[in-house]
Amino acid sequence: MSAPAKLTAVDLHAFFRGTEVLRDVSLEIPPLSVTAIIGPSGCGKSTFLRCLNRMHELTPGAHATGRIELDGQDVYGRDVDPVHLRRRVGMVFQRPNPFPTMSIFDNVAAGLRLNRIRGDHEASVERCLRQAALWDEVKDRLGASALGLSGGQQQRLCIARALAVEPEVLLMDEPASALDPIATAKIEDLIHELKTRYTIAIVTHNMQQAARVSDRTAFFYMGDLVEVGPTEQIFTTPREQRTEDYVTGKFG
């Protein structure tokens, strides 16, 4: 890796009510690239993602030890405001979750309002909808309810909403698993676009999706980071037997 990492996990351990769900994970996420996190259910990949913007600690009984650094600064530092952190490290979830009572426009503007960001909201909303590759589909009905959009459009709306506060990192937890192949392809195409401006970490069950969208892939298994490397290497010549078994479909 040439450029210094955007996000770095150092000796990260995560727990749910005393059960260790992530063990001693150290991983660097390089800037302006896509890092995919793969592994079977319960391997800790979503927990890892949620540690990166301190959402893990919001779950009752959950805590983490170790360090997460954003541009070299410890995000668990005493002077760090988690709300501010989550502005810099945005998140998109598995199920599209637009605000149901709000219009398309307001859904995107909501992020700005909640964060008391002033300025030209109309321009910001358009910019985000364009970046989320949704503008052409919704520009004539910005006042309509977000629930009138298809699942794929709703997910892109959620991405636009996440972009509104101008984050530096975008965390995506299974962003296309509830979508059909066409909507999935649009999201994947969008990820390629977005990585020119944002650092992206994506959790996915879909190995082919990880292979298609990411530059680097990290394989988690039962709370351990087994292997991380260039995506091409992970899918053609993995170094670890456990990675080999997982990507070839030998699940024991």
Binding site: F235, T236, V247
Partner: peptide
């Protein structure tokens, strides 16, 4: 099957 790793090789 979209083979990967040793299967792909």
């Amino acid at each position: 099957r979209q083979p990967a790793a040793s299967d792909l090789r």
